[in-house]
Design a protein around this nucleic acid. Structure first.
Lengths: 215, 215
DNA sequence: GGCTTATGAATGAACG
DNA sequence: CGTTCATTCATAAGCC
């Protein structure tokens, strides 16, 4: 295609150089990342909230197998964070306190107990689960550049999708959920990799609007 | 605005084909839409977490302004195995691979992807659910008589009650309220609150309104 | 068209 | 810590 449009290319270079194009691509990638994060966070919070407001525990209150002497044991064997609690936990999680110490746990528990019943164990478990989940979703495979001798044939598809947003002409953004689970979820609830782009990425979003306007 | 589109569309032909350009545009539009809606939702949640019951579906599902050519967001569809996939899964499950390692998961996913869209997570979940379901069928069939009910409850309780390092369910000893959270739900959300922790509160996305505008 | 059932997905808790 | 289990939620499929 290079030959065919060479002439037009000369004109083109004035308005959009390759560097600019690259920058655009990066910006979109950053955009995508942030969208994904937003979506996940929203889903986590909204889902919980919705469920709770709809009386989540109300469904199975009557357990015929309960001992008659005890008023209402049952119902809840598993702690469920209230929306407020969840929100606070999420905030703390991505604030950078990735390693909640024992002391930190106590503090958090103390704060959360103002918004609902909770125990330190709950908080501890929550952070453990949160971390594990993030990790699993982000990097199911391998280290930095390790060459997998294992049979990994499949995950390529998903990884590529993120690396090059428009490389394949495939323009399914993060939330474009197909019939299957959304591909490539950078679900770590951090904003962006501090190392990779730093503040650049954030500002990039501002620049992107210009292109959007042009379109 | 139209002129701008025409010009840039033409001049950019060197580095981007028209198709790529179109793809880019759609992608940006999609992201803009997604972010716009997400931000709106977040704002609503932060403002009043109580009265948005009907808002969840209304805002997302019925969105006529979807970017053309972009798959509808918020489909929220869940993966459903095709008959072929299901058959393969059943076979593998029945074969005795009771312990699907991650490696196996990848292989299986790879194979199943030839018969329809699927991800590793789908396979993982399927096996998890399958196993749980099998177990549940066996377990309830404990005693021949009414003892089953008691045994059921007891086994559960003991399992859960076990040894707890500290705190869990023993929150309000005086009253049997069950281990679930207290009904107190303060509507205070510090979700997108800039003042709460300052720093990067994820919403550099405040700028997102611009995208919506352009879009 | 709504309700019920089946089942994929989410997640708190436990295990090693 | 990473993986697995058990339970619950939400939704597609099945029914009336």
């Amino acid at each position: 295609m290079e030959e065919g449009v060479a002439e037009e290319g000369a004109v083109c270079a004035k308005v959009m150089t390759d560097e600019q194009m690259e920058a655009l691509r990066k910006q979109i990638a950053a955009y995508a990342t942030i969208c994904e994060q937003l979506v996940e966070m929203h889903r986590a919070i909204a889902a919980r909230q919705d469920s709770l407001s709809g009386m989540r525990l109300g469904s199975l209150c009557s357990d015929p197998l309960m001992a008659p002497g005890v008023a209402k044991l049952s119902s809840r064997q598993r702690w469920t964070p209230t929306p407020t609690q969840l929100q606070i936990l999420e905030t703390i999680f991505y604030e950078g306190n990735g390693t909640p110490s024992k002391q930190k746990i106590k503090e958090i528990t103390s704060e959360l107990s103002q918004h609902g019943q909770i125990s330190e164990t709950n908080v501890y478990n929550w952070f453990q689960n949160r971390r594990a989940r993030s990790k699993r979703k982000k990097q199911p495979a391998a280290g930095p550049n390790a060459a997998e001798s294992e049979a990994e044939v499949e995950s390529l598809n998903e990884k590529k999708a993120k690396a090059e947003p428009f490389a394949h002409g495939n323009l399914s953004p993060a939330v474009d959920d197909g019939p299957f689970q959304s591909p490539d979820i950078s679900s770590e609830l951090r904003f962006a990799d501090p190392e990779s782009n730093g503040s650049q990425s954030m500002f990039a979003l501002g620049d992107i609007s210009k292109y959007g306007d042009a379109f």
